[in-house]
Computed example of a mutant assay.
Amino acid sequence: MVDSLFADVSYFQVPVDDSYPFGILSFRSNDGDFRDPNFAANYAWACQAVDSGRLACFIVYFYSRPNWLETVNVHREMVERAGGPHRRMITMIDLESGGNPRGNQSDGINGAYWQLTDWLGDRRRVIGYANQGDFFDMWPERPDGLRMVGAGYGRNPNLPGQIAHQYTDGQGYGGGLPEGCPPFGDCDMNIAYAMSPQDFAAACGVGIEEEFMSALNEFEQRELLDKTRDIWIQLRGPEGEGWPQLGKNEHGKNRTPVDALAAIDDALEDQRK
């Protein structure tokens, strides 16, 4: 199985360019009400890279602060002004104790989460980031199905719902994995185990199938599902267990049309012998 690497950057690194080698990119929009100076350049490049097929998806994250509603609104405003949210954009809540109160902050973080899911229209498109200590201390009450990027330098935190592992801050924890990449040099690096970039995008609700379905209106979606159901019934039978009028297969179960064609072919072959 393939693993997917990706960088996690902010204005502490240079803006991204076409030397970036991976199919996913994560970059910051804001820290509370502080707007990252590199956001606009990184966002414009990421949108173009997704449209051209260079990226499968990208993550825009914000550093969570107690003024959670203002933090979310700054994030949304920045994305909207940049022309977004792009159909392949994922939002990530970066939860860290640095400069923040310790202890249970679930009310504010969950408030941010639900604001974002209402905005993006799909819970899968909102993920979180934390190390093991901050995750359990600051976010003990979490939405069902939450996906996380778990930070653990030199070890995998294996957080509940973890979809990727930030394994290094570029300071030698990679254990043979890259400590950075062009054009950034050493930086935070992540790995999504046993997932291609396309798998990661689909898990976060921004894959090709999701994009196709979102392009259809409600009537077209219903019509497509009805046609798919009709085809499935024709192939598998009304209960998914074959058609009784086609006889039984060698396992004593009702034949499907494919089974019946194979049986006819076998009978004709016996006649030819």
Rank of each mutant, 00 (worst) to 15 (best):
D17N: 12
D17M: 01
D18S: 07
D18R: 04
D18F: 01
D18L: 01
D18W: 04
S19D: 03
S19T: 15
S19F: 06
S19E: 03
Y20G: 00
Y20Q: 02
Y20H: 04
P21K: 07
P21I: 07
P21C: 06
P21Y: 09
G23W: 07
G23C: 08
I24D: 12
I24Y: 10
L25D: 02
L25W: 08
L25A: 04
S26N: 12
S26T: 09
S26I: 06
F27S: 11
R28I: 11
R28K: 15
R28S: 09
R28E: 13
S29D: 02
S29Q: 07
N30L: 10
N30W: 04
D31W: 13
D31I: 03
D31R: 07
G32K: 03
G32T: 04
G32M: 02
D33I: 07
F34L: 10
R35F: 01
R35E: 14
D36H: 02
P37W: 05
N38R: 13
N38H: 15
N38V: 12
A40V: 14
A40E: 14
A41L: 14
A41H: 12
N42W: 10
Y43G: 00
Y43H: 15
Y43N: 02
Y43D: 07
Y43P: 05
A44R: 12
A44T: 15
W45A: 00
A46Q: 10
A46N: 10
A46S: 15
A46L: 02
C47M: 13
C47L: 03
C47P: 02
Q48I: 02
A49F: 05
A49L: 05
V50I: 03
V50T: 11
V50M: 08
D51Q: 07
S52V: 11
G53K: 09
G53M: 13
G53N: 10
G53P: 00
L55I: 03
L55W: 07
F58D: 01
F58V: 07
F58S: 04
F58R: 07
V60D: 11
V60M: 11
Y61M: 10
F62E: 08
F62Y: 15
Y63P: 01
Y63D: 01
Y63E: 03
Y63F: 15
Y63M: 06
Y63I: 09
S64P: 01
S64K: 01
S64Q: 13
S64M: 13
S64Y: 15
S64F: 15
R65H: 10
R65V: 04
R65S: 02
R65L: 06
P66F: 05
P66Y: 05
P66A: 05
N67Y: 13
N67R: 14
N67Q: 13
N67A: 13
W68V: 08
W68I: 04
W68F: 01
W68M: 03
L69V: 12
L69G: 00
V72M: 02
V72S: 00
N73S: 03
N73L: 10
